[in-house]
Amino acid sequence: MVRRNVVGAHYGLVDWLAQRVTAVLMAAYAMVVAVALLQGAAADFVTWRSFMASGLMRFFSFVLVLALAWHAWVGVRDIWMDYVKPVSLRLALHVLTLFALIGSVGWALGILWRL
């Protein structure tokens, strides 16, 4: 293969937009939790658990985990793209990042499921 400097993958808009949308979602989640905390949702373990176990909160937490993972994926990938030049190493890092994120999402969902 000739060594050519290539650009033109023609993606990025969805990621860029997703990063912004997920950020808004996470901010909203943080607000809800903050308000709940102020109202004493974490007064003791039982109240905290019942708050988090409610259907609405479980749905909201589920969305948060997905949003966080997507957000992190775009951000971490950007770091690899900025600083890591060898393509094979970059690919390996991308795959590792993906595995780590998917694993974390699965783990988080498991926790949510058990609530």
Binding site: V7, G8, A9, H10, Y11, G12, L13, D15, D78, M81
Partner: peptide
């Protein structure tokens, strides 16, 4: 826009 819609050409701007 087609030409710029690219993770490197445009979206390196942070």
């Amino acid at each position: 826009l087609d030409d710029l819609e690219d993770p490197y050409r445009l979206f390196r701007c942070h």
